[in-house]
């Protein structure tokens, strides 16, 4: 297993945002994490990425215990996160954003990676020296993903990549996710667009109120007609 999360609990003060969640990710898998607002999906990703300290439980990456490591150490270990709301550096140019993404990569290898990103994200190539704050929502999302890819991660986590995008751009983002999967990358994606996510995911986990309620293959879950109830209304799963 590439990533093993075991009984992870994370608290904000007295609030348990994540209660005893366990999941595994194998190499090459595309995993969907779905669930309503406040279910703890972002907390889960942030804890794995090292932004939050778990109260109990463990995170193992490539067999090694990495629980509680700082975010930059997690990145060096091979875990990259595309954070919620993208959080691109709006005052920096597109290429500077990418260079920051590749800050852990030796300088010599950074330039070829930039070329690779230019090829993968043609929209960005034309705006190389534009301040990132002037990008449209779709472009900014692609930049956020490209920036995370610059570190050559073995596991790429994305938090709500389609949030706030027009439907046509949602398509672009999903095409990109599929493309990255087809390149053999390992992905964990938090998505509100559950139906779309289940179409493409190898496996998916549904979270509610900080707990894992269902897991299964994308096809299995997508076929359940009580999904809406499970998903938002909290009916029995």
């Amino acid at each position: 297993m590439l990533l093993e999360v075991d009984n992870l609990t994370t608290q904000y003060g007295s609030i348990a945002a994540l209660r005893s969640v366990s999941l595994t990710v194998a190499e090459g898998e595309l995993i969907g994490l779905i669930g309503p607002n406040g279910a703890g999906k972002t907390t889960l990703l942030n804890t794995v990425a090292g932004l939050l300290e778990p109260a109990t439980g463990s995170v193992r990456f490539k067999g090694e215990d990495v629980t509680g490591r700082a975010p930059d150490a997690m990145l060096r270990a091979g875990v990259a996160l595309v954070p919620e709301h993208r959080r691109i550096f709006v005052d920096l140019t597109v290429v500077e954003n990418l260079r920051i993404g590749g800050v852990t990569v030796p300088a010599k290898e950074r330039e070829p990676l930039l070329d690779e990103m230019a090829e993968l994200f043609p929209v960005l190539r034309d705006k190389w020296t534009t301040q990132a704050g002037f990008l449209s929502g779709g472009e900014a999302q692609q930049l956020a993903i490209a920036r995370a890819l610059m570190s050559r991660p073995q596991l790429l986590m994305m938090d709500e990549p389609s949030l706030g995008l027009a439907p046509i751009l949602v398509d672009v983002v999903f095409d990109l996710i599929v493309k990255l999967r087809d390149q053999g990358r390992t992905l964990v994606v938090v998505e509100q667009n559950a139906a779309r996510m289940l179409e493409v995911a190898d496996r998916a986990y549904v979270l509610r109120s900080g707990e894992l309620v269902v897991e299964g293959t994308g096809a299995e879950l997508g076929a359940r007609d009580d999904l809406f109830k499970t998903f938002v209304a909290g009916g029995d799963a």
């Binding site: 990425a49 932004l51 700082a70 975010p71 930059d72 990145l75 060096r76 990259a80 996160l81 954070p83 959080r87 550096f89 920051i100 993404g101 800050v103 852990t104 920036r147 995370a148 570190s151």
Partner: peptide
């Protein structure tokens, strides 16, 4: 925070 996510020490 985001800079740390990008591996900035």
């Amino acid at each position: 925070d985001t800079a740390r996510l990008m591996g900035v020490d």
